[in-house]
Design a protein around this nucleic acid. Sequence first.
DNA 1: GAAGAAATTGCACACGGTAGCATTATCCCA
DNA 2: TGGGATAATGCTACCGTGTGCAATTTCTTC
Lengths: 341, 341
Amino acid sequence: MAKPPAPPPGPATVRTISRLAGVAASTVSRALKQDPRVAPETRRRIAELALQAGYTPNAFARTLSGGRSGLVGLIVGPLQNPFYAELLAEAVAQAAALDLRLLLVHAGAGPIEDRTSQALLQYQVDGCLIASAELSSRAAAVCAARGVPIVMVNRVARLHASAVACDNLGGGADLAAFLLAGRHKRFGLVLGTQGTSTSDDRERGFITALAGAGMQPVFSTAGNSTYEGGHAAAGRIAAMSRARRPDAVFAINDIMAMGLLDGLREAGLQVPQDISVVGFDDIPAAARACYGLTTVAQPMTMMLQRGLSLLTGRIASGNLPDETVILRGQLVVRGSARRPP
Amino acid sequence: MAKPPAPPPGPATVRTISRLAGVAASTVSRALKQDPRVAPETRRRIAELALQAGYTPNAFARTLSGGRSGLVGLIVGPLQNPFYAELLAEAVAQAAALDLRLLLVHAGAGPIEDRTSQALLQYQVDGCLIASAELSSRAAAVCAARGVPIVMVNRVARLHASAVACDNLGGGADLAAFLLAGRHKRFGLVLGTQGTSTSDDRERGFITALAGAGMQPVFSTAGNSTYEGGHAAAGRIAAMSRARRPDAVFAINDIMAMGLLDGLREAGLQVPQDISVVGFDDIPAAARACYGLTTVAQPMTMMLQRGLSLLTGRIASGNLPDETVILRGQLVVRGSARRPP
DNA sequence: GAAGAAATTGCACACGGTAGCATTATCCCA
DNA sequence: TGGGATAATGCTACCGTGTGCAATTTCTTC
C-alpha cells in the first residue's frame, strides 16, 4: 500500500485534510476559501473531506498570518442599568450577524484596569466598541496608540474616535417643550454622571429650551445614574415645601426616573397630579403600567447598526476620517407627566 | 557603526526587542517570563527595553505555540432578566481577576446558531461557561466533542459537563414552608421555562414540601420567565372568583414575580392582604420598596467563584471527573407575603 | 592549569494558515 | 507537432511565540 492516510490525533488542520486529499496544504486553504484557481472538482472533494473530518479553521493561526482577528473589544457601562443590558444584547445579536466576535472587556461603572486594556492589544482586536457614559480614557488611549479604530456608542467623542449617539440636546429640548406645553411652571432636574456628554447634553438641551420660554430650573440634584440615586432624590424633593417644590422633574435617564417615581409615591405624592416626571432612554420597564414613563426613546437598533458599520468601515480601510452620527430620538408620551390640555 | 538597531515599523515583537538588546529572540521570550535561566542583569535590561518599546505579547502567537488561549466562551440567557445581567457583570469582574478573557458568544433566549457555536472552536476557547436556563445543546455538544471543559451555572448538567447551581429544590421547599407557616391555604404557581432544571426543581421542591403538609397547588400557569408573562398571569388570577383564587403564589423567578405583583395591584388586589407573592433569585429590584419581594437569594458571587474555579481546574488538568456543586440559597423575608403570626 | 560542573544564551523547529512564486499539466491553434 | 498561453497545484517562507537541545562561557576545585 502506498500511503495509508493515517489521520493524526487531535483536531483536524489543513494539513490533515491535505494528506487525506493527497494535495498540498495551500491547496486546501485555497479550496476552502472558494479560490477560483482551484479546480471545481478538487474544491468539492476537499470541502467534503473537511466536513467529514470535522475541520474547523484555527482563528489564531489565521490571525497571525492574515493580521485580522475578527475580534471586537467591547466595553459597556453598568449592566444594573437596563439600558446597557439592552444595548449589550443588541450588540451581541448584531455582531454575530456580521461575523464579528465580541471580547467583553469591561462592564460596570468602575475604571478600567491597565491589565484589562492590555487585553485589547494582546488579543489584537480589530476594533473597539465603547458604550459607557464614563470616559474609559485608558482603553481609548491604548487603542488610539495602536491605530485600532474606536467607535463610541451613546457618547460623543472627546478624543480621536468615531461616535454614534442619540440627539441628547434635541431630546432634552423635546421634553422641555412637552412640559412647557403642559403648563408646568417649576422645573427640577435629577442629574446623572457629571461630565459625561450624554448627561450634560440632555441637561443643556432641556435648560436651553426652558430659557427659550423665559424660564429656568428651580432645582437640580445628583442622581448618580442609578435607581437608588433617583429614589434618594425623591426624598429630597418630597421634603420641600409645596411652594418651593418643582411641579415637573426631568431625570436624565429612565432608571433614575423609576427610582424617583417610586420614591415620590412612597412619600405620598401623586404622579402626575402633584408632580410630573419624565425620563430618557425608553428602557422596557418604562412602558410598564406601574411606571408609564414619558420619555425619549433611543433608536437602539439603529444606533448599533450605524456604530458597527462605522467600525467595520474603519477596520476595512484604516484611514477614514473620524465621523460622528447623531440620531434623533423620539418622544414617547405616557402617563407620568401631565399632558398639554 | 556596527549595527544601527533600526526599529522596524509596526508594533514591537520579541524580535524587535531582541535586536535592540542584541540577544536572541528566545532569550527575550524567556526573560519576559522571568525564567531564572536568564541572567538577572539581562532580564532587567530586556524588561526595560520592552517597556520602552511598548511591547505587548501577541496572544494569538502565544496560543498557537502554547495551545492555551486564555479565552472562555460565555453563553448567557436573556439580559432583559436582571438576574442574567447581574450574573454577567459578576462573571466579567471575576474573569478579569483570573486573567481570563470572555468571548461573549450568545445572549438571549433564542437558540444558538451553528455559526455561533463554531466560533467557540475557531477561537480555541479553553473552556465554556454556560449560564442560560435553556439547553444550548448545540454549543455544549460542540465543546464536548473537542474536549473543551464546560461549566453550567444556574443549571444542573444534563450532559457531560460540570455545574454549579443554587439548591433550587431546597429553596422551593423553604418558600413553601414559609407560606405554610403563614397559614396560607390555597397555593398557586407561575411557571418559568418548562423543561429547564432550574424551573422544574423549584417547582418540585415547592410541591413536595406542600405535600409534606398534606396540601397541593390549586392553580398553575405559565409565566414564560418574563415580566410580561408574570403580568399576564396576574390577569388570569385576578379574574378568578375569590373562592377559587389562590391566597399565595410562587413565581418561579423574581422578574415574573414583579410582573405578577404589578398586575395584581393593577387589578385592585392588595399584596399581601388579599394575596401573597413570593419569587426566587433576589435580583436587586426585589429589594425596592415598591416590591419588597419575599424570595430566595442566590449566592451569585459564590456561584461564579466556584464555577470559574471548576472551569480553571478542568482547563489545567483535562481529565478531572465531572462535578456538580449545589449551593444553598437564603430565604429573604420582605413584605410581599403574609408572615407567620 | 585543566577537567568537570554550572550558568547563559543561541539555534532550530513547531504551532496552523496564507500568499507569492515556481512548477507542472493541459489546451489551443497555427 | 511544436510553441505559447492558461489552468492547476506544489513549494517555501512568514506571521510571533515557546521550548528542547546544543553551544558557549564562566566558575569550581583539585
